[in-house]
Design a protein around this nucleic acid. Sequence first.
DNA 1: TGTTATTACGAAATTCGTAATAATT
DNA 2: AATTATTACGAATTTCGTAATAACA
Lengths: 297, 297
Amino acid sequence: MDPHLLRTYVAVARLASFSAAARALGYTQSAVSQHVAALETDLGLPLLTRRPVAPTPAGERLLEHAGSLLLRLDAARADLARFAAAPRRTLTLAAAPLALPPTVLDALAALPATGVTLRTLPRTEIPAAVATGAADLGLVDGPAAPSDPLRLPDVAPLTARRVGEEPLVVVLPAGHPLAGRAGLGLADLVDARWIDAPDAGLPLERLRAAVPAGPAGSAGQGFPVSLRYEGTDVRTLTALAAAGHGLALLPRTAADGVPLTAPRLVHRVELLHTGREPTGPAAELARRLATAETTAR
Amino acid sequence: MDPHLLRTYVAVARLASFSAAARALGYTQSAVSQHVAALETDLGLPLLTRRPVAPTPAGERLLEHAGSLLLRLDAARADLARFAAAPRRTLTLAAAPLALPPTVLDALAALPATGVTLRTLPRTEIPAAVATGAADLGLVDGPAAPSDPLRLPDVAPLTARRVGEEPLVVVLPAGHPLAGRAGLGLADLVDARWIDAPDAGLPLERLRAAVPAGPAGSAGQGFPVSLRYEGTDVRTLTALAAAGHGLALLPRTAADGVPLTAPRLVHRVELLHTGREPTGPAAELARRLATAETTAR
DNA sequence: TGTTATTACGAAATTCGTAATAATT
DNA sequence: AATTATTACGAATTTCGTAATAACA
C-alpha cells in the first residue's frame, strides 16, 4: 500500500475517471491504470468498477482509510520539516467561527504586529490545518462538560490548551413562547425546532448525545431540524434564528439570547498547536492567552 | 516516506542497532543503512546518531508519527482483507480487565459454543487489536460522564456501542477513617493516597481532569500516587487496596467497596467492532449484548 | 581485534512513458 | 466515431545483495 498508489487511487475515485486523474496528477493514463491495478492485486480485491468508474464497497472503505492515512502522512512530513525550518516570523491562525471570544481577539490585537493571517474554517478542519502546517496555531471550539477537554480527531500528536469557556445561550425569535423565561434547560428544548449549523454553530448531533434521556420518555432522537445552514457565517445564523427559522445555541459573547440554566454543557475554546513548543509570534500569542486564562479565573 | 522505510527506521530505533534490525527484518545491513539514509535525505534531517544508535530529537518525533501511521496502515489492510475473507466461524474477543461485567459474561456463556478465544489486554491496546484484525470484537471500558461515550484513540473507523454502565466504588482498607461512610464524593478523595493502575484499574490522569477544581483551593494536581501497578490483574489491585497501599476506584461488580455518591463519573463499557457489520459468532454476541442493554434500561 | 555502519558496484526488479489494442457510449 | 481503459514493451530508475572499506569499542 504505497502512498503514491493510494493518492492516485483517491484521485481516480474522486474524479471518477482514470484519464482525468492522470491529468490532475501529471501522469499518463497508463501509469494511473497500472497504479490502480497494482493496488488491486496487492489487496486482492477489485476497488473500482470501470465504465462508469465508481468505487466498489471495498473501494469505498479504502477511501475512508486513505483520507486519514494521507492526511497523517502530510502531517508527519510537515511536523518534521519544522525541525529544519527557520523560526517563523509571521503567524497564520486558523479559527472556527465561534472560537474567537474577546479574550482571543484582545490577545491578538496586543501582538506586536508582524504579518498575521487569520483564516476561518469549519471546526472539523482546524486540526488538519495545524497538523499539515497550513496554520501555525488553531482555535477550535465546541460544547463540552465544564472543564472537560474537547473531542478532537487525532490527525497527529497535537497539543490543546483551554483558552476560554463560557455559558451557552439560546437564540429565540422575538415572539417565541419561551422568550420571557430567564433561564432554560436543554431538556426543555428537545422538542423545539432547531437550526442545524454544524460549521457556524454547534453540531446538533453532540447535543443529542449530551441530553440524558429526553423528558417524559420522549421518543425519537430530539432536537428536530427545521433548517440546515452549511456556511460558516455566524451573523447569518443569528439572523435565521431571530427570523424564527428555528432555535440556535451559541456562546454568550457571540449572540444575545436567553441563558441556559445549570447547563451540563459550556462552550469551550482550545488553542491547538503541534506537540513541540511554538516559536516566534505563535509562541507570543500562546503565552498571552495562557496568562489571560489564569488571571481570569 | 515509504512505509517500508518507516518500518525499518522504527526497527533500527527500537533495537538501537542497524544489524539487529536487519536480522529482524530479513534484510542486509547494507539495505537497512540505505533505507535510513534514504529517509534522512527525503526528510532532509538526521534521524539517528550512530554509535551509539539513538534517535535525534527529530527522530523521536518521527517515531511518534510512525507508530500510529504504521498501525493505521495495518488496520486499513486488515479491514480490506475482511471483504474477501470467508465469514468467521470463530470468535476472538479482546477485553480490558474491567470490561467484562456480568451482562457480557452471560451473553458470552449463552453463545452456541464455537471456538471462542478471550484475551485480556491493557485498554489502550484494544482498539488497535480490533482494527488490525487481531480480535473480532473488543470490549473497552473507562470512566465517563453518565451516557457520554468513551474517548477512544481513533486508529481506524471503528464503531463503539455501549453495552454497560455502572456506578463506581472506592476500595478502602478495613481500618480506613472513611470506611464507615455510606457514600463519598470524588472531591473528598483528591488528597488521599491512590494506587495508579492504568491497565488493571482506571487511569488517575482521567480523574484529575474530571474533578473540577479541588476542594478549598487544593494546590497541586490531586490524587497523589503511593504505588503504581502495571499489570492487568484486578485481584492484585483489590488486594493492594485492601492491604492499605492506597485507594482504588473500580466498577461495582468488580469489587466490594464504598459507593461514590452523585459521581460525575460512571464506569462504562463499550463493544468495539469495525465499521461494517460483524459476521458469524461476533454478530451473534453483538446482538445478544444489544438486547441485554435495552431490556435492562 | 571484533563488531558495526557506510560505500561501491552490479544484478534484478520496479516504474513510467510510448504506442498499440480493446472496450464502452 | 470518439472517448477511455488496458496491455505490451522498453528505457530509466530504484532496490537490494555482495563485498570492500571505514569507524568505533
